[in-house]
Design a protein around this nucleic acid. Structure first.
Lengths: 193, 193
DNA sequence: TCCGACTCTTGACATTTGTCAATGGGGCTA
DNA sequence: TAGCCCCATTGACAAATGTCAAGAGTCGGA
């Protein structure tokens, strides 16, 4: 299973044998059941994990409401970015939505790899650039004005998630409430027929 | 003026003398007048620039509407991230709002520095992480439901920008229209008195 | 100085979205 | 199977926001 992680990192930059060995020994495989917490609010996010199999969502609480911030399925990196970056307690929860297997490396191990293997910074840089790229895309969805535009954008960007995620979570991800999403969907699908 | 750039990068990671020299020779200072375009839609963003003095905004066109995506003032890095990262033509315009002086390095020079000076990847990684962090914050504003919440969030995050930016641009940045922002402001300021 | 362009504000009204409440269906367990 | 919980949908109504139009203020150029 670690092969999936190595392959992913290799795509960013070819890994030397020594670095490959180091990554392999630092990586811990963890499996969460649907409903388990991978991270809770108030904790420092001290790891970064590749999703090998399964699906998770991150969310935060704003005025008693649960707001979904990201969905992370196979091939995505799970981390609570603000907390990971600052190493301060964050406001995000991360929850497994399905049985989810992760390949995880500790923050401190990652930092040691950065200093012991300078080329690992290339991998880290490219991963951060990619994450930034995705964050920009998420932001563009939310500046769209109507609920229908947002839903269409979601459909085209995440065609498979619709089947796997509760609609109420998609609604908060898109910055609208559950009923509005439901109405958009029924209107939208009537149109198509 | 290049000192400001070197100081900024030094904060991410101490730069060797050789790297400092290389950065200095690769950096070009450019000054734009208010209203000038730093980048246009359809161009590949082939540079990254530190704002030494001034203010710029990036925006894109969505259904004939001009949507502001970021404001970049002193100390911020200007680049059209998606286009820079993919090296494909992007959909963003970047426009100087005031007379703006930039310290710019070409994409290809940056890539050469990554390979010639491995430790420069540390700088690049930290810069990308920081950019990611900022993007997450921008996204959280937009998931707030009411216009007033968004405006208050903007005020607390960007207290100085209000004086320097046209309100219509702040409105599109917050995903609302100009009139709504105007009403929120008059209601909000009445409350405070 | 005057004019025009632009920005911001305000009003009236239409549309969209949120809120609250009720309903039905699916899946789970006793 | 019955009962329960959770999810999604729908209706009625309230609240927020968008649209269109008008007008006041500012600034710069002719």
């Amino acid at each position: 299973m670690i092969e999936a992680l190595l392959e992913r990192l290799n795509k960013f930059h070819p890994l030397s044998a020594a670095l490959t060995e180091r990554i392999s020994s630092a990586t811990k495989m963890v499996t969460y059941q649907a409903g388990d917490y991978i991270l809770k609010e108030g904790q420092v996010c001290n790891k970064a994990c590749l999703v090998i199999k399964g699906l998770a969502r991150s969310y935060y609480i704003n005025e008693d409401k649960d707001i979904t911030s990201r969905f992370m399925d196979e091939g995505f990196i799970i981390t609570s970015w603000i907390s990971y970056y600052t190493q301060q307690p964050g406001n995000e929860f991360i929850e497994a939505l399905e049985e989810t297997t992760l390949a995880c490396i500790n923050y401190s191990d990652i930092q040691k790899m950065y200093s012991d293997f300078p080329e690992f910074n290339i991998v880290g840089r490219k991963q951060a650039e990619y994450g930034f790229f995705m964050a920009e895309q998420r932001t563009q969805i939310l500046r769209k004005h109507t609920a229908e535009e947002k839903y269409k954008f979601f459909l085209s960007n995440h065609p498979t998630l619709l089947q796997r995620v509760a609609l109420k979570h998609i609604a908060t991800y898109l910055g609208m409430n559950e009923e509005t999403l439901s109405r958009v969907r029924s209107k939208f699908h009537r149109k198509k027929v």
